[in-house]
Computed example of a mutant assay.
Amino acid sequence: MGFSSIFQIGDSNKITPEVKVLAVQREHELYFGNEGDLKQFPIYREKIPQPVFDEPFHSAYFNEAPSIHVDSIKILAVSASSVVHFGSTDEVSSVARVKHIRQLEE
């Protein structure tokens, strides 16, 4: 399980994992002391557009056996802002914002 990931067994109402990552790779280890201010990068401030659903949706469900049976499951990894969910949910909204900087010598 990675950053802000969720493993949920059972029903839920709302799932909203969110992660902000700043990854800096340098050829030589060097830390200036004032790094890591996420506000300086627009990727962390920009509003994420949401889809607009303008078509009516009607559903009806009948579960004769409302239980979930699983023999086995193999999950290798769940990464940033991801969800593994067995059950029903009303709303899922996941956000992962990653700024990756590589500083190499010339």
Rank of each mutant, 00 (worst) to 15 (best):
V78T: 14
S59V: 10
S93T: 11
K14S: 14
P49Y: 00
Q103C: 05
S12P: 07
I48E: 12
F7W: 12
S5A: 15
D90V: 10
A60G: 12
S82V: 04
A77H: 01
G87W: 02
E18V: 08
F3W: 11
I73S: 03
F53T: 13
N34K: 13
F86W: 04
S59Q: 10
A23G: 07
L22A: 05
V70T: 09
S82M: 00
H100K: 14
V83E: 00
A96D: 02
K74I: 11
H100G: 12
V98S: 08
H58N: 13
H28Q: 14
I6A: 05
E91T: 08
I6H: 04
A80I: 04
S93K: 13
S67Q: 07
H100A: 15
S67F: 11
P66V: 08
D54H: 09
F57A: 11
P51L: 03
Y44V: 03
E29Q: 14
N63H: 12
P17V: 07
D37E: 04
E91Y: 12
V83Q: 00
N13L: 05
S81V: 06
Q103G: 07
K14M: 14
A23W: 03
Y61C: 10
F86N: 00
E55P: 05
L104C: 10
V78H: 04
R102H: 11
G36F: 04
F3T: 15
H100P: 06
I68P: 00
F53E: 11
A23I: 06
E105P: 06
